[in-house]
């Protein structure tokens, strides 16, 4: 298994860098081009959620991303160190639907973590969220080409 680890301080500007790194490694690992937008958006959502949580609770702590290819899948794990005070809205089984007026009016201007995770579950076919008292871990994966199993196939 080849793994790339990235840590970054909780600044919104770094989320774009994390997206770019994740997309580049996904491509190199053999994830289909048609899935790369999903990878980019899902990793961005996970990192944005982590940045917002760190800015609230522990701005000096870094956020960590692990990207790996394992058994024909490209896997991304985003881990934060912010105390988890979230409600059960974090559960990935939550379905998201804002199309009716009642739901729409309840949505805050600034979407927070529950919304981002719900978007991730709509994008990745394999998502697990591990909320914990010392931080949250979001693991997501996508199919990758078997020929790129060592992660070293040229792009």
């Amino acid at each position: 298994m080849a793994t790339v680890e990235l840590t970054f301080s909780a600044l919104p500007a770094h989320v774009r860098t994390a997206r770019l790194v994740a997309t580049a490694i996904a491509r190199r690992t053999g994830v289909q081009e048609s899935l790369l937008d999903e990878v980019r958006l899902a990793v961005g959502e996970a990192c944005s959620r982590a940045v917002e949580a760190h800015r609230l609770h522990c701005p000096s702590e870094p956020i960590r991303i692990e990207l790996s290819d394992d058994s024909g899948r490209f896997e991304v794990v985003v881990s934060d160190s912010a105390p988890n005070e979230e409600s059960p809205i974090e559960e990935p089984s939550q379905t998201l639907h804002l199309g009716d007026e009642a739901s729409f009016n309840l949505v805050p201007d600034s979407f927070m973590s529950g919304f981002g995770i719900a978007v991730i579950t709509g994008l990745a076919d394999d998502v697990e969220v591990y909320p914990g008292p010392k931080g949250m871990r979001i693991r997501m994966s996508w199919p990758a080409a078997a020929t790129a199993a060592n992660g070293l196939t040229p792009a």
Binding site: R40, L41, G44, S48, V107, S110, F111, G116, V119
Partner: peptide, 8 residues
């Protein structure tokens, strides 16, 4: 690119 922050 548009994420949930932009949607918000």
């Amino acid at each position: 690119f548009l994420d949930s922050t932009g949607l918000g």
